[in-house]
Amino acid sequence: MNRSLHLFAGIIGSFALSCYALVLLPQQQLGGLQPQIAEDEGKIVDIYPVKNVSHEEGRAIYQSEGCFYCHSQQVRDEQNGTDLARGWGVRRTVARDYIFEKTPVLGSMRIGPDLANVGSPKWRNENEGEYATYKPKKRDASWHLLHLYAPRTVIKSSNMPPYRYLFETKKISGQRSVDALDLTGLDAPEPGYEVVPKPEATKLVAYLLSLDKSHPLKEVKGSAPEVAAK
């Protein structure tokens, strides 16, 4: 009996330790993180991060389609990779960046590029060239929609799946819709028809364009100090 007491004590104790060190202690340390507020003469001039409620639906689609099995949303510093040099962010991301996300999509794979800042004007991936037929410096909503519908029309070797089911092919009645995709070649619909995004695709792209974690934070060295110092 004595021996099984040792066994039980060991099993329960080790589990308690594991749970304490990797769940409870971090929750204690990080659970109370607040947004960073900059005040100027008693007036709040800047808050980061801001709760991004208007894009919750788009975010839910990002999760239900499982985009995060191929895309991370975390930028590492120079010691841990080339993320900054690739233009995926201007600083590494830290715990405070995610406080308003109940279920963050940090991701564990990079089959595609990191998307933590894909909506930021400073985001860069790769430029137009041998591999990419159409790569404007700033990807806008219509670029993202085209890319979602048929990634290979813009990036030749892409292995991102096409999300054609987030679009519908309609007969053009009168005027061509403003958000109809500019498709050419094999992807183009029959004459008289057009491909337009379903609401899901529009929301998803709006969410993508809202992704921007480049705001400076006081705990991150190297992110522009003027605002952080205030």
């Binding site: 594991s18 990797l22 769940v23 971090p26 929750q27 990080l30 659970g31 993180l33 715990a95 995610y98 406080i99 308003f100 996300e101 109940k102 279920t103 963050p104 940090l106």
Partner: peptide, 15 residues
């Protein structure tokens, strides 16, 4: 649990 958010949630999943 609403109190578990952000990277702690990711950490719980990793754990």
């Amino acid at each position: 649990l609403p109190g578990v958010t952000g990277v702690v949630q990711s950490l719980v999943a990793a754990w």
